[in-house]
């Protein structure tokens, strides 16, 4: 067990855990986006889906605890790495020019940190329902919680639209580097597949952002109504 910890506490060991948890979180984000898209099928579909997720409390809570654990590992180890990295260059360069390091890759800590704040906000908003007092939980005609109504209500408010769209930008940046980077960290690399591996990040990030933004914009522009 101590051996395992010594491995995990090397920078590369930590990075492997960050990569694995990152991939897990990315998987969740994709799954979340696909679920959300059901909003286009109308209130019945979305509310039934939401109810289905809540039907098995064991599943729900183990998923929640699992996700929380993954997120804590991801964030905790990243903070540890980031502090170490910051210390590795105490005096910065006066002039700095990058040839290859992308904007997304250089701002991972920033986008990650902002995303964390957003996720807490998002949970408070949609899951706990403490952010927006103008909407009170109610049931739809079939007796399910009216998630659909809540979503529509939220994105009719331009402030939420701007906020959520901005968050999508952050998510896109973070995912686009993070995903490909995770593959490299796990050693998933091959001369024949490298283009695929390196494109995976931006590709998945693009799909997630497009999917989520489509929902927000569809509501904001009045395509979807209550």
């Amino acid at each position: 067990m101590t051996r395992l910890f010594t491995v995990l506490l090397t920078s590369l060991g930590s990075k492997v855990v960050v990569a694995l948890t990152g991939l897990g979180l990315a998987g969740f984000v994709v799954f979340h986006m696909l679920g959300n898209l059901q909003v286009f099928e109308g209130s019945e579909s979305l509310n039934t889906y939401a109810a289905f997720l809540r039907e098995l409390p064991i599943l729900l809570w183990s998923a929640r605890v699992g996700l929380l654990l993954i997120a804590v590992l991801h964030v905790g180890l990243t903070i540890r790495l980031a502090i170490h990295n910051r210390r590795a260059r105490p005096v910065p360069y006066a002039v700095r020019e990058y040839r290859k390091a992308s904007m997304a890759s250089r701002t991972m800590a920033l986008t990650g940190g902002l995303l964390l704040i957003f996720i807490i906000f998002h949970l408070l908003h949609f899951t706990a329902g403490v952010v927006d007092a103008s909407f009170s939980d109610r049931l739809d005609p079939r007796g399910h919680r009216d998630v659909y109504g809540k979503v529509i209500h939220a994105f009719q408010n331009p402030w939420f639209v701007v906020l959520y769209l901005a968050a999508q930008g952050l998510l896109g940046l973070h995912l686009s580097h993070g995903l490909s980077s995770s593959l490299q960290t796990l050693g998933l690399e091959h001369p024949l597949l490298n283009r695929l591996f390196r494109a995976a990040g931006p590709l998945v990030a693009g799909i997630v952002v497009l999917g989520n933004a489509a929902i927000i914009l569809a509501i904001a522009l009045g395509v979807l109504r209550a």
Binding site: S11, L12, S14, K15, L81, H84, N85, R87, A88, R89, Y98, R99, K100, A101, S102, S105, R106, M108, H177, S180, S181, Q184, T185
Partner: peptide, 10 residues
């Protein structure tokens, strides 16, 4: 005291 790799390929 080196940092860890960020896969930025610089």
């Amino acid at each position: 005291g080196f940092g860890s790799c960020g896969n930025q390929y610089e």
